[in-house]
Amino acid sequence: MSVKVLVVDDSGFFRRRLTEIFSSDAGLEVVGTASNGREAIEQALLLKPDVITMDYEMPLMDGISAVRQIMQRCPTPVLMFSSLTCEGARVTLDALDAGAVDYLPKSFEDISRNPEKVKQLLCEKVKDIARSNRRLSAFSGTAALSSGFAATARTGAPLAPARRTDSALAASSLCAAPRRRAYRLVTIGTSTGGPVALQQVLTRLPENFPAPLILVQHMPATFTKAFAERLDKLCRIEVREAADGDHLRPGLALLAPGGKQLMLDGRGVVRILPGDERLNYKPSVDITFGSAAKVFQDKVLAIVLTGMGADGREGARLLKACGSQVWAQDEASCVIYGMPMAIVKANLHDAIYSLDDIGQRLADACQ
């Protein structure tokens, strides 16, 4: 059965080109197009697509406003197109807060220069999003939850938990409370769905959180600085983009810069290295996890959150061999159950927790 796609863009050229790309794949079917946010909502309600591709800048109603209404009225996976600029980063993060599942850079040049590569990437991305087990009805309150973080996180006021599915509760209840240990480092790896997931985890941590954190999110270089700044505003701990020579300290979360690799030297000092073209991911969770295992041995707590692929599995294997702990996000609360599934299938996990629980369990485990 084909994946039904709704293409939304104010550019006639882009609508036609995307329609051509998706129509050339036997597994995809373009069921409609729209040139603005209002049309997108109408078409989403009428056509019931499996996936919507959404532009941001459009007349009558922008993409973010459209996403918010779609998530309220007919929750549907949305793939945003964003420019690789500072403004593009801000808009993308806003769209993810509004409920979009993932994003891709919007580049007319890439479509013209590398049509086959772009076609493959787009079609695979749409199919992965359509195959995701995301229960959108349970996540449609994401935007409201996210906006509430800004007002409460710094003050320490309790945060209202997101709605949870029965399967999420069941999975979480199977895991005992985490054993408290004197971790020297907490490192978290994630991809698709990660920005919102990281936000939900980190805003649960107290200002006096006793361990340093390293965050690895698959994200372009122009996005990571804006993302770190956003997290810093929402969290009680300090969050910033990592720089070469940074020292780890309790209550500081360092986000690996996009397009680079983050490693730790023998003294535990952060080293930012050029992204190796032989590696699929820049930054790579495997690289950071493996480096942490070498430096801190059994004193690491690694957490793998939602994301496509298996990045983090081999790094987790090294951590487990050293005696460190590895947690995985449960399937029911993942946007894409790829990276955590790789950990679980390889039997590298010490615990599986719902996204709603991870932040509090992390705070408890590191007291």
Rank of each mutant, 00 (worst) to 15 (best):
G258T: 11
A316C: 14
A310F: 07
M308G: 11
V300W: 05
D265A: 00
L255S: 13
P274K: 10
L264I: 08
L264H: 05
G315D: 08
I303E: 04
K260N: 15
Q329F: 00
L273C: 14
P250D: 00
P283D: 15
S284F: 12
V270K: 05
R267Y: 01
R271C: 13
G266S: 07
A256D: 14
V335C: 08
D276L: 05
G275H: 12
D244W: 07
A302Y: 03
G268H: 06
F289A: 04
E277D: 15
D311M: 10
L305T: 05
P274H: 06
S284K: 08
V300Y: 03
D276F: 02
G323A: 05
V295A: 07
V326N: 06
E314V: 03
A310C: 08
L252N: 04
G312K: 10
D286F: 04
F289W: 05
L264D: 12
V295P: 08
V269I: 11
T288H: 08
L301W: 00
A243Q: 15
D330K: 03
G312N: 12
G245K: 06
T306N: 08
V285L: 10
G251E: 02
L262W: 03
A253I: 03
D244Q: 06
R249P: 00
S284C: 15
L248V: 02
L279T: 13
M308E: 13
R271S: 14
G258N: 11
R267G: 14
T288I: 08
Y281S: 14
A256P: 10
V285C: 06
A293K: 04
V304Q: 10
G290P: 10
R278G: 15
G259I: 10
V335K: 00
D311K: 04
G258H: 07
T306F: 02
D244M: 01
R278T: 12
L262K: 09
G266V: 01
V300C: 06
R278V: 02
A332H: 01
D330V: 01
V285G: 12
V304D: 02
A310H: 11
P250A: 08
G312E: 13
H247E: 13
V269W: 02
T288R: 11
Q325G: 02
Q261V: 05
L319P: 02
N280A: 11
E331R: 07
L301E: 10
S324G: 09
L273H: 09
G307N: 10
S324V: 02
G268E: 09
F289Q: 05
L319I: 01
Q297D: 13
A332V: 00
M308N: 12
A293M: 12
D298I: 00
L279W: 00
G266H: 11
W327V: 00
R249S: 14
K260W: 11
I272P: 15
P283Q: 14
A243C: 14
S291E: 11
G290A: 15
V326A: 03
S284D: 15
Q297M: 05
K320M: 00
G315Y: 04
V270D: 14
S333Q: 03
R313K: 13
